[in-house]
Structures are given as structure tokens and as C-alpha cells.
């Protein structure tokens, strides 16, 4: 998957070495790519707020980290974002794969996805939606750099336009 290779290359360029995640189908190429690359330490967390704790702990100890989650899992993150990453000024980088839009078949995926961007805005967390291959490198490169240079929690949202999304079988 070209998009995943681009994102992984930008993570490596910015010396992100820890990947902790709650898995999702759309995230497979990122997870598999990191697992196959000695540059990364990659492991699952049982819950998204736990993953944020791990990533924040690693950052404070000098290891840059990224947290991967599905849009539904974003709903588990709010207190960790609001009471840890944001007020302690931690460069928490999140990659959120987007369900609940563009051909969703499961209605319960839809409400949280509508809430993600307003919630990020309310918390003051910058975000971009990665939807096009031609913008992907520029957006992901600049946003990852901004995250660490400004110590600002940051979200990269992966649109089904980029990943292909998940459809009913």
C-alpha cells in the first residue's frame, strides 16, 4: 500500500520509534510495516487511553511515539487527551482510521465519527484528514513535524478515500 509506505517513511524521518495501537483493518499496512521494520517497536494496547498513556510516557523519556486507533476507539481517548496530552504539552501523534462514512454498513460506527473533529477542535488538537495520495506526503510530513516541534497533540485521520475503507461482505 503506497499510502502506508509514505506515512511510515515520514514517521521514520521524524524518528518516531514506538507504535502502540488498538488494531483495525485499515491500519494493517501500517502495523505490518512497522512490525517488519527494526526501526520500530510496535505493540498492542488493550484500550486507546492506555495507548495514549504509553505514548506519553515514552515521549517524556525521549522516545517519539505514535498511537493508531479506529474512529470508534477515539471515543475511549477523551480523558487521556484532556487531562494528560493537552495540559502537559505532550506531542501525542494519533493516526485515526475513519469508519462511519462513505459506504458504512454499521450504523453504530457513525455517531462517534461525526463527533471526532468537533471533539478535537474543542480540545485544541490540530487535525488533518488524509484523503488523497497527491497531498499525503506534504500533509503527513508537515503535521508530524509540527506535532513534535510545537509539542502539540496532533491527529491524522485516514479517510476511506485513501485506505479504501471497509465494506460489508
Amino acid at each position: 500500500m503506497q499510502w502506508a509506505e509514505t506515512v511510515l517513511a515520514n514517521l521514520k524521518e521524524h524518528n518516531v520509534r514506538l507504535m502502540t495501537y488498538v488494531p483495525d483493518n485499515m491500519l494493517i499496512p501500517l502495523i505490518d510495516g512497522a512490525q517488519a521494520d527494526m526501526h520500530f517497536t510496535a505493540f498492542t494496547a488493550t484500550r486507546e487511553e492506555e495507548a495514549i498513556g504509553i505514548a506519553c510516557g515514552a515521549d517524556m523519556a525521549g522516545m517519539r511515539a505514535v498511537v493508531l486507533m479506529q474512529s470508534s476507539g477515539f471515543g475511549n481517548t477523551i480523558n487521556a487527551l484532556a487531562s494528560l496530552a493537552v495540559p502537559y504539552q505532550l506531542p501525542l501523534l494519533m493516526v485515526i482510521s475513519e469508519r462511519g462514512v462513505i459506504g458504512e454498513y454499521n450504523s453504530v460506527q457513525m455517531p462517534i465519527t461525526r463527533a471526532i473533529r468537533p471533539a478535537l477542535d474543542a480540545l485544541g488538537i490540530p487535525h488533518v484528514t488524509l484523503a488523497r495520495e497527491d497531498e499525503l506526503h506534504f500533509l503527513s510530513h508537515r503535521m508530524i513535524r509540527q506535532c513534535f516541534q510545537t509539542r502539540t497533540p496532533t491527529a491524522l485521520i485516514l479517510s476511506p478515500l485513501l485506505t479504501g475503507g471497509k465494506t460489508d461482505v
Partner: peptide
Amino acid sequence: APIALGGAVAQ
């Protein structure tokens, strides 16, 4: 514990 785990992995 997760914050300490992240630190332990990093250092």
C-alpha cells in the same frame, strides 16, 4: 502504569 511502561520501553 502505562506512562511508566512507555518510559521503561524508551529507557
